[in-house]
Write a protein that binds this DNA or RNA. Structure first.
Length: 482
RNA sequence: CGGGGCGUAGCGCAGUCUGGUUAGCGCACUUGGUUUGGGACCAAGGGGUCGUGAGUUCGAAUCCCACCGCCCCGACCA
């Protein structure tokens, strides 16, 4: 019966599983250009739900959207030393246009700090112009050597928030606030538990004074940086002359921040929740929260009309409750095929409705997280769906959390570190020396993910690698990462 | 750029070593019929610059040369 439509099991080859599900669930397709991809309707619908909800959170915290251009004068990148160093290797540059060589080459934005800095310097004259709280939804381009769908593509979609403030306190508060926003987004919408923390100097954004991150654990126990929030200090303000007169008519540099979440988050959803059957969509972001599969014989027109009538009625009731519902009326495809397909696409709840059910006034309800189907009264089915979706979200979140918690280890020495790093995340005291971090990476493939905001104290505990005093108040999280 | 592999139908592959009719298989697709409550079956069809170029040969997917492209592993990254 079952043909070769099965996915490679995660336990056999997680990476093969990931690649297969991206295409089989119809999230994306390869493009003719190496390293870039087409985001197909099912994947894009997921992105639209991410956008919609995150955007509302930005607006609720006082931000406005605007749009900066794609092309950035090459010279802008030279102005901030760390920034140019960090981004030059992955810049794509337009050198010719209109059949002629350009006087100044134009970089395709890999991120927009520089051009935004240039514009902010024009817009900001007085402390009354601050804070400036802007965000843009855009595409960016980074010439990556190795690419993977959603996780690292040459072109990707994201939002980048860029704010300017009168002093460090406000800017740092903004940086923290946006980390809170991302945390809530990942957990409340994505059902993805995250570890919040600060990046070590070596992992910091090019040009930042402080980088905050949310790190999530994928089901292969590797880490995925899911969003970041940066405090730039006055680095960009000095490079782009973003200065203003303060209340005492003194010139001062603005303190800036930037923060972003990209289509990589789709990768986080895939790898946080998916199983050997395919995707599992978090209900609050799922393109379809419920799919209804009508069942009937083609030769029985009466039953067919009756079934489709009930199905439409149920769909209407669900829409009235703001449930995203999809009815799969495709003909010539067996119900069993549809069940498998929607399971692979990760739809949280599925209703199966046929003549036998209607006779009894019931429907079969399948839950993507549970093996058995439930018989539910048709008349009260719609009413119970919103709550079932809430419970589904909670179960999904708890499932991810308990997986993560059972794959985090606290280690005492380097030998134990090397052993446990193969199994998941590791808390270890670290001196903070970038050289030591590098060596650890070479020896174990693991990187310092972050200094967690909450976690075991490192005070008085020597570095597991160098034996020197800990460089941070808490133990650092190390992990192999995407 | 270093190491390995691959280019044959939309996808996955066989055929290449040992040259020889009309280039084949699975999936997908089209049509018809039987099916439809867990990935249906039967039958008939459509679809190919065998990566590109030059060569050897009576004859090249197959041999030689050059080029191009892609994938995997390593160094960089949201």
């Amino acid at each position: 019966m079952a043909k070769g439509n099965k996915l490679t099991p995660q336990s056999e080859d997680f990476s093969a599983w990931y690649n297969e599900i991206v295409y089989k669930a119809d999230l994306a397709d390869l493009s003719p250009v190496r390293g870039s991809m087409v985001i197909k309707p099912y994947g894009y619908a997921l992105w639209e739900n991410i956008q919609k909800n995150l955007d509302q959170m930005f607006k609720d915290t006082g931000h406005e959207n605007l749009y900066f251009p794609l092309l950035i004068p090459m010279s802008f990148f030279q102005r901030e030393a760390h920034h140019v160093e960090g981004f030059s290797p992955e810049l794509a540059v337009v050198t010719h246009a209109g059949g002629k060589e350009l006087e100044e080459p134009l970089a395709i934005r890999p991120t927009s700090e520089t051009i935004i800095g240039e514009m902010y310097s024009k817009w900001i004259q007085s402390y009354r112009d601050l804070p400036l709280l802007y965000n843009q939804w855009a595409n960016v381009l980074r010439w990556e050597l190795r690419t993977r769908p959603f996780l690292r593509t040459t072109e990707f979609l994201w939002q980048e928030g860029h704010t300017a403030h009168a002093n460090a306190d406000e800017a740092v508060a903004e940086t923290n606030q946006m980390l809170d926003v991302y945390t809530e987004f990942a957990e409340y919408y994505g059902a993805i538990p995250v570890i919040r923390g600060e990046k070590t100097a070596g992992e910091r954004f090019a040009g930042a004074k402080m980088t905050l991150t949310i790190e999530a654990m994928m089901r292969d126990a590797k880490a995925l940086q899911s969003a970041t929030s940066h405090y730039m200090g006055t680095n960009f303000a000095e490079a782009f002359n973003i200065s203003f007169n303060d209340e005492n008519n003194q010139q001062a540099f603005a303190h800036t921040t930037s923060w972003g979440l990209s289509t990589r988050f789709i990768g986080a959803i895939i790898m946080s929740h998916g199983d050997d059957q395919g995707l599992i969509m978090p209900p609050r972001l799922a393109p379809s929260q419920v799919v209804i599969v009508p069942i009937y014989r083609r030769d029985d027109e009466v039953a067919k009309a009756q079934v489709l009538g009930e199905v439409d009625k149920l769909a209407r009731q669900l829409k009235d409750k703001n449930v995203r519902v999809r009815v799969d009326k495709r003909e010539g495809i067996s119900p069993g095929f549809k069940f498998n397909e929607w399971e692979q696409k990760g739809v949280p709840l599925r209703v199966e409705l046929g003549p036998k059910d209607i006779e009894q006034g019931t429907a079969l309800l399948a839950n993507r997280l549970e093996p058995d189907k439930e018989t539910v009264k048709l008349e009260s089915l719609a009413e119970g769906i919103p709550e079932r979706l809430e419970r589904f979200h909670e179960a999904l979140y708890q499932r991810a959390k308990s997986f993560r918690d059972s794959h985090i280890f606290e280690v005492k020495d380097y030998a134990e570190f090397k052993e446990k790093i193969e199994e998941g995340f590791v808390y270890a005291s670290h001196c903070g020396d970038p050289e030591s971090e590098k060596q650890i990476q070479e020896e174990t493939k693991a990187t310092a993910r972050c200094i967690p905001l909450e976690g075991p104290s490192a005070s008085g505990i020597p570095c597991i690698h160098t034996g020197k005093a800990s460089g941070y108040p808490r133990k650092v999280i190390f992990a192999k990462a995407y």
